[in-house]
């Protein structure tokens, strides 16, 4: 089973890298881009076949290592 984990900065946490990307896009002529927020994307191959068990384990992995929940949120997507 393959899992996709997106990790993003919590709303309200400043993202200087996202700001730099937004200003570079504007400088390049890409108009109409508002706020840009940079995050992380991880793919994990899991031996587990039960989606509920897999989700619970991924939740623990995110809370304990993959994300820093002081500053980051995460979402988990499971593909069969």
């Amino acid at each position: 089973m393959r899992a996709r984990v997106h990790i993003t900065l919590k709303p309200g946490v400043l993202d200087p890298q996202g700001k730099a990307i937004a200003s570079t896009l504007a400088r390049m002529g890409f108009e109409g881009v508002g706020e840009v927020r940079q995050g992380k994307y991880l793919e994990l191959d899991l031996a587990e076949t039960d989606p509920e068990v897999a989700r619970a384990r991924l939740d623990a992995m995110c809370a304990r290592l993959l994300a820093n929940t002081v500053i980051e949120d995460y979402t988990i997507d499971l593909a069969e």
């Binding site: 946490v13 400043l14 200087p16 890298q17 730099a20 820093n68 002081v70 500053i71």
Partner: peptide
């Protein structure tokens, strides 16, 4: 310790 250390504001 509480909090987190993030990328410098000036990058």
């Amino acid at each position: 310790l509480p909090g987190a250390l993030m990328r410098n504001a000036g990058l």
